[in-house]
Simulated scan of single mutants.
Amino acid sequence: MTPPFPLRVVAVSGGLQRPSRAATLAEHLSDLIAAKIPCQRHLIELGQLAPQLAGTVRRSQLPDTVERELAAVEQADVLVVATPVYRGSYTGLFKHFFDFIDQDALVDMPVLLAATGGSERHALMIDHQLRPLFSFFQARTLPLGVYATDRDFAGDSLRNDDLIQRARLAVERALPVLDLTCHARTRATGNVAAA
């Protein structure tokens, strides 16, 4: 039975340029989720928001375009986050964006973690940097992260079979959590509609 209320899947790319490998990876993961569960997808490319976001210290100072993207993250049912590795961590712009997210907005939200880097040496960044960040928000980080290097891409698509399989496995392992989220959303939305 198809749930009447598709999941809101929001992907956030910390890439600073366009085209961005982080955005490509985030979209690929979102596509895999959409192939398994009915959802509405939205991609946020932080590089496109940089001129409006950088230098702002209070959320009340942000323009509406950035505020809408923050609200999209806070109202998501599932997050897919992907960032380039910069000096062993996520980009500063990625952290700056999430600094504006309400501290309680992501509690129990499933988050699929991904990163891109120049070599395999930074693969543990997902567990050492991204996972603690989303643990602070009390989000539910999904079991498998996905890490890709520059040579895993061909233009704007993934080309490495091992990486493609890893991405598929990450989504498959996430499905039990996503299925529960889907049913919870259907119940909650149904209760609101019945009220």
Rank of each mutant, 00 (worst) to 15 (best):
L133K: 04
D108M: 11
L130W: 00
R131K: 06
V111T: 01
S119F: 13
T116K: 07
V111F: 07
H122C: 09
A115V: 07
M125W: 00
A114S: 15
G118W: 08
R131S: 06
Q129S: 13
L113D: 01
I126S: 03
F137R: 07
G118H: 11
L113S: 02
A123Q: 01
M109W: 04
F137P: 02
D108N: 15
I126L: 08
P110C: 15
L130R: 03
L112T: 06
H128G: 05
L113W: 00
L112I: 15
D127M: 10
A123F: 07
G118P: 02
L130Y: 03
D127Q: 14
R121F: 13
P132I: 11
P110Y: 10
L130A: 06
L112S: 08
A105D: 04
P132D: 11
L113R: 06
P132S: 12
A114N: 07
M109R: 11
M125S: 00
V111R: 03
L133R: 06
P110W: 11
H128K: 10
V111H: 05
L133E: 01
L133H: 06
V107H: 15
V107T: 15
F136K: 01
L112M: 15
H122Q: 14
H128I: 05
A115K: 05
H128S: 09
G117I: 01
H128Q: 13
L106Y: 00
P110N: 11
S135A: 15
M109G: 06
A115L: 09
D108Y: 11
L112Y: 10
V107P: 03
V111L: 11
I126Q: 05
A115P: 00
S119Q: 14
P132M: 07
M109A: 10
F136Q: 13
A115I: 11
P110Q: 15
D127H: 13
M125I: 00
L106N: 06
E120P: 12
I126A: 04
F136H: 09
D127Y: 01
R121V: 10
L124M: 13
H122V: 02
V107M: 15
V107F: 14
S135G: 08
Q129A: 12
R121L: 13
E120K: 10
G118M: 10
H128V: 12
L112Q: 15
F137D: 02
V111W: 00
G118C: 12
L133D: 06
A105P: 05
V107S: 13
F136G: 12
L130N: 00
F134E: 05
M125P: 01
P110G: 15
S119V: 15
D108I: 06
Q129E: 13
M125T: 01
A115S: 11
A123Y: 03
M109K: 09
D127F: 09
D127I: 09
H122G: 04
P132G: 09
D127T: 08
L130M: 06
